[in-house]
Every structure is written in C-alpha cells, then in structure tokens.
Amino acid sequence: MGNAFLAFVLELAMLVFVAWWALALDHALWTRLLIAAASVGALVVLWGAFAAPKARVPLPAAGTVAVKALAFAAGAAALWGLGLPAAAIAFAVLAAANTAATTYVRRDRAA
C-alpha cells in the first residue's frame, strides 16, 4: 500500500518537474505554456498507454519498466535542467527503487 502511494507521488512529481522546467525556459510565456502542456501531455499519454496498472496496451514487465524509466528520466532531466543535480539524482534513485519494488510485487501477485 505504501509503495503504491509512493509510486503515485513519484508519477505526479515527474509531471510537475517537467512542467516546472518548461515554464522556467527563457522564451515567451505562450511558448513556455505550449511546451509545458505538450511535454506533460505526452508523458501522461505514454504513461496511460503503456505504464499504468490498467494500461491500454499491456506490455511485458521489461517493456513497462523501460517506459517508466524513460518517463522518470524525463523528470530527473528536468530537475537537472533547472540546476538541481542533487535533487535529480535523488529523484532518479528513488524512482528506480520504487519501480523495482513495484515490479517485484506485481510479479509475485501474477505468479
């Protein structure tokens, strides 16, 4: 239960970090808003289609982990781009550990 809650918090944090990065760019406001909406929207679609517990396109465990790694890497890269390398590393490590634990628990339930 706690791991599932942490997974949800990490997923939301990833989206917030990407939006924050886009809004901090040195462009016109409408451009930043467009980039933020497109980036977050793409991540939401990617996650919902392939990585969510009730994904529209179920993948084998390795495929789901790859999609999650890509999405969480975007969140970590956003933090890095904001000049927060320690936070980026901490987020990446926490997301990787949580994804590993979630994958292990789901594998045990499926067996």
Rank of each mutant, 00 (worst) to 15 (best):
G2L: 12
A4D: 13
F5V: 13
L6I: 10
A7H: 11
F8P: 00
F8T: 14
V9N: 09
L15S: 08
L15A: 15
A19I: 05
W21C: 01
W21E: 07
L23I: 02
L23D: 09
L25S: 14
D26Y: 10
D26E: 15
H27N: 10
A28P: 00
T31V: 13
T31N: 03
I35H: 04
A37N: 07
S39R: 05
G41D: 10
G41V: 03
L43W: 08
G48C: 07
A49H: 03
F50N: 02
A52R: 03
A52F: 07
A52V: 02
P53G: 07
K54Y: 02
V57W: 15
L59C: 08
L59T: 07
L59Y: 10
L59G: 07
A62I: 10
G63Q: 08
A66Y: 08
A66M: 13
A66L: 15
A66R: 08
V67Y: 11
A69H: 02
L70W: 06
L70H: 01
A71L: 13
F72M: 09
F72K: 02
A76R: 02
A76W: 04
A76S: 13
A77L: 15
A77R: 00
L79A: 02
L82K: 02
L82Y: 04
G83H: 03
G83E: 03
P85D: 11
I89Q: 01
I89Y: 01
A90E: 09
F91V: 00
A92V: 03
V93M: 06
L94M: 14
L94I: 14
L94N: 04
A95N: 08
A96V: 00
A101K: 09
A101E: 09
T102F: 02
T102M: 14
T102D: 05
T103M: 08
T103Q: 12
T103C: 13
V105D: 11
V105I: 13
R107D: 12
A111F: 11
